[in-house]
C-alpha cells in the first residue's frame, strides 16, 4: 500500500483538435487491468455522472466520451482557478477477443469502471483430466 505517499496535482492533459463541443477536452487518467476472464479499465472522470458518458466499441476501437454533469452555479463569482472544467475523451485499441455485447460500465465517485469480458472462445479453460 502506498499510503505514505503524498499526492501531487498534475496538469490535466488537454487534447487538441477534438472539438465538436465547446470548451477544453481532457485525456483522463486510466488504469488497465487484465483478469483471466475480462479486461477492466478505470478512468478518472471527476464531475461526470452516469448519464453523461458515452462508450462505443467499433472495429476494435473503444471510444470514451464524457462531459461535466453540472457547471458551476451562475451566481458564483470566480475568485481563483487552479483547474479547468471540460469534457473527456480517450480511445483504446482493443483486441478481438472482447465480447462487445457484454461490456459493462459503472460510475462510482467520479471513476468509471469498464468491464470488457473476453469472449468464451478465448478464456482459459480448465480441461478436466479423467483417470484412464
Amino acid at each position: 500500500m502506498t499510503e505514505a505517499h503524498e499526492l501531487q496535482t498534475r496538469e490535466k492533459h488537454e487534447l487538441e483538435g477534438e472539438g465538436t463541443r465547446p470548451g477544453p477536452v481532457f485525456r483522463p487518467d486510466v488504469d488497465i487491468l487484465e483478469r483471466q476472464d475480462a479486461y477492466v479499465i478505470y478512468a478518472d472522470l471527476p464531475g461526470v455522472d452516469d448519464r453523461s458518458i458515452d462508450v462505443r466499441l467499433d472495429r476494435g476501437e473503444l471510444t470514451l466520451d464524457a462531459r461535466q454533469a453540472a457547471p458551476p452555479d451562475a451566481g458564483w463569482r470566480p475568485l481563483h482557478a487552479e483547474y479547468r472544467l471540460g469534457s473527456y475523451h480517450r480511445v483504446f485499441r482493443v483486441s478481438e477477443d472482447i465480447d462487445g455485447e457484454a461490456v459493462t460500465a459503472r460510475m462510482n465517485a467520479g471513476v468509471l469502471e469498464l468491464t470488457l469480458p473476453k469472449s468464451a472462445a478465448r478464456k482459459p479453460r480448465a480441461i478436466p483430466v479423467r483417470p484412464g
Partner: peptide, 17 residues
C-alpha cells in the same frame, strides 16, 4: 493481488493529501 491479474497501465495515483 489475485493470481492471474496483471496491470497493463497505471496512471491513477494514490496517496495522502
Amino acid at each position: 493481488d489475485e493470481e492471474g491479474v496483471s496491470l497493463h497501465r497505471r496512471e491513477r495515483q494514490s496517496g495522502r493529501f
